[in-house]
Amino acid sequence: MKPSDPGINWLEEKPLGLAERLYLPLFLQGLTTTARHMVSPKLTVNYPETRPTVGNPLIYRGVHRLNRDEEGRVKCVACFLCATACPAHCIDIVATESPWPDREKYPESFQIDELRCIFCGMCEEACPVDAIELTSLLDLTGKSREEMIFDKEKLLSVYDMTKDSEPMKSAELGGTL
């Protein structure tokens, strides 16, 4: 875009009024903000001794999990829509024919590079069968980069860990189950 572009709406900076030029009113305004924060309740916590409170765990964007269907099989149908939507290109799927008669395609391998992920939640948004979800687990640590590439088993185990505290998005959130 060039400065001469007709799409640009050029605004003139307003000249300073008396109050701005006197400096004092703005100074007081700033001090008030500081003072307000001094008396308002503290938001910072002593992590990790104190756990931060997560507002609504159902919509929090933390570590991923891969949900299971009613029979305990991975729910994912390997459609690659999450991998397509992912702006960080951190999802890697290898698809193959499923071993079950009632399902056609499933992921032979499913990996998410949690270090590359920006936790935007696009994958969850894109999934047509609600197989991938972001949980409220927020402390994500590991000793190596490799360890932070979560495979299918690990992602399924996150589901097992969180399925009771964070039920699969169903009825009220418009899930497919």
Binding site: A78, C79, F80, T84, A95, T96, E97, K105
Partner: peptide, 9 residues
């Protein structure tokens, strides 16, 4: 080609 790659890639 079955399930090898999504065509948009």
């Amino acid at each position: 080609f079955l399930y090898q790659q999504r065509v948009w890639f």
